[in-house]
């Protein structure tokens, strides 16, 4: 595996918990993997499974879905649906023998700057271990 490889990871974050959490991580000067590109959404419930699939098919090495912990949703119940959607994607990927490890869900609250730093690092390390997403080389998509 090439040493130079830095994965590209897209993270879909809800604005109320996870994004604030990520900000907190930043403010706390915690190390965040440089591979992560954050896309802020108002609620993790806005994460259309197609966003995740599209990111995956377009060559993102990993995709993260992050929202408030179940029960904490700013919009009452958005993240319960997010959870189901994650499971749906996961199940479809599994059935199709697609790389489920590249899709990741985590609940990060506004105070969990540390958790944010932790899970992103962990996920990034995992993706680095997996190597580049094979779709990057596939032209017949």
């Amino acid at each position: 595996m090439e040493k130079e490889y830095t994965p590209q990871i897209i993270g879909f974050l809800c604005t109320w918990c996870s994004y604030t959490g990520a900000d907190l991580a930043g403010v706390s000067r915690l190390q965040i993997p440089p591979s992560i590109r954050v896309i802020r959404l108002m609620c993790s419930g806005r994460i259309d499974p197609l966003f995740v699939t599209k990111a995956f098919i377009s060559g993102s090495d990993g995709v993260m879905m992050m929202g408030c912990h179940p029960g904490d949703c700013h919009y009452q119940k958005g993240n319960y649906y997010t959870r189901r959607r994650y499971k749906t994607i996961n199940s479809v990927f599994e059935s199709l023998h697609l790389d489920t490890e590249r899709i990741f869900l985590s609940w990060v609250s506004a105070s969990e700057g540390v958790k944010y730093a932790h899970v992103t690092k962990e996920f990034s390390d995992k993706i680095t271990g997996l190597g580049p997403n094979p779709v990057k080389k596939e032209i017949f998509l």
Binding site: P49, T53, I89, V92, L96, L98, E138, I139
Partner: peptide, 28 residues
């Protein structure tokens, strides 16, 4: 940009995306 990255690109794109996407939408 696909062309630059991969040396080639299927046109139209999105075949696999369509099918997996549709599965996510309705397979349940």
């Amino acid at each position: 940009s696909e062309l630059n990255q991969k040396g080639g690109a299927r046109v139209p794109s999105g075949t696999i995306f369509f099918h997996t996407g549709r599965m996510i939408h309705m397979a349940v």
